[in-house]
Amino acid sequence: MKTVLKSLVIAFSLTTLMACNANNKKTEISDKLIAETIINTNTKETTPEIKVALLLDTSNSMDGLIDQAKAQLWKIVNELSYAKCEDESPNLKIALYEYGNDNLNAEEGYLRQVLSFSDDLDDISKSLFSLTTNGGNEYCGKVIKTALNQLEWGNSEDDLKLIFIAGNEPFSQGNVNYKDATKLAHQNDVTVNTIFCGDYNLGISTSWKDGADLTHGNYMAIDHNESTVHIASPYDDKILELNEKLNKTYVAYGSAGRKKMEMQAEQDTNALSYNKANAVSRTVSKSSRLYINSSWDLVDAEKDKSFSYDDLDEEELPNELKGKSKAEIKTYVEQKGKAREKLQEEIENLNKKRRNYIAKQNTKSSNNLESAMLEALKSQAEKRNYKWE
């Protein structure tokens, strides 16, 4: 994107310089140098990323907030899967912190990094379901500064870098001034969005709005005890049936393969623990481009340029592939890949009908974590030329 434009500008500038100084040998630049400059510049191009650090208050009064985060994760992921940055589909990485919990280390400010930036959606789900609440001190400035210092935010101008912090105690608590923390965020091109769990005006008077304003982020107040509404559709049963078939297309390998497949099934169960419609949302996420498991699944791994069948250790293969030739393994993986693509296409087509059905049924506006996050994400993404399909 922007790097391509930069390379064209460099090429144009160098070409112009050659024309203007054709008689000056000291400033002569060869076509080879131009070509090398373009190649070298283009190799720096990377896929844009949406990076979201979610900082959740896990003190006693926040059970409703944590419940919303667990119940609404897949809806948020699905909405982000439709994002486009010019002609590219951005990757998604999510980090998770908890703060304000007496079970956490007091010397570290009653906060904990639960998960660093990750694109492993199962791992993100597992991390959310690991959260429990307990009374504590909520230090917003401290947890923001910690997330800024600990996470790898990168320097790409195309990346969307966002912090979402949710809680209900004064934003100014703790020995780290929230103004210093938000100033650091602004310097690093990270936008801080604040979500106050309670009355809108109370959030303003306790500095939650000021915390967002300092980085041009969104201030939002939500009802953290609002129950998540999952709307059932006529397509749910079929999508869940396809999910069972989808799981059978994964070819686990390596020491982590079996554990990862177990985690996949566990997160299916966690999603279903809310209701069928939430499990459907997770299935849609699993069929999207954001659900990638190349670290343990041969079908996804084969798509990586660095992958080679010659590097596979037979001991790390699943039982059905032990003793097979490289050609037989390749054929097996390709068949699983084709089956997965077909299932993903079926799920996608059913989900389009499902989304249309839900849009007609869902006339009630929500005031919860999902609605707050998506409102902020979309408004800030549009400023970076992100669009939604």
Rank of each mutant, 00 (worst) to 15 (best):
N60D: 12
A256R: 14
M263S: 11
S233Q: 01
I66Y: 01
D159I: 10
S285F: 00
L202P: 00
K26M: 09
A221Y: 00
D67E: 14
T46N: 10
K342C: 04
L92H: 00
T132E: 13
Y178E: 04
E45W: 09
A271M: 08
P318I: 09
K353I: 00
M18S: 09
K179E: 14
L240Y: 02
D122S: 14
Y99E: 03
I144S: 01
G217R: 02
N42A: 11
N278Q: 11
I347W: 01
N21T: 11
N201I: 08
N225D: 07
R258G: 10
Y178K: 07
K2T: 13
P234Q: 06
L162I: 10
S295E: 15
D180L: 14
A22L: 13
W296C: 04
I94N: 04
I347A: 01
E389F: 06
K330A: 12
K336R: 14
K326D: 06
L17F: 15
L374Q: 09
G136Y: 02
A339D: 11
L121T: 05
L374T: 10
S273Q: 10
E389G: 09
T182H: 03
D63H: 11
T191E: 04
Q361L: 10
E262I: 11
V280W: 00
Q68F: 04
T37C: 14
T43Q: 15
Y97G: 04
C140S: 15
L350A: 02
N367C: 05
N367T: 05
E79K: 12
M373P: 02
W74V: 00
W208Q: 00
L73W: 01
G109D: 03
K305N: 12
K2Y: 13
V192G: 06
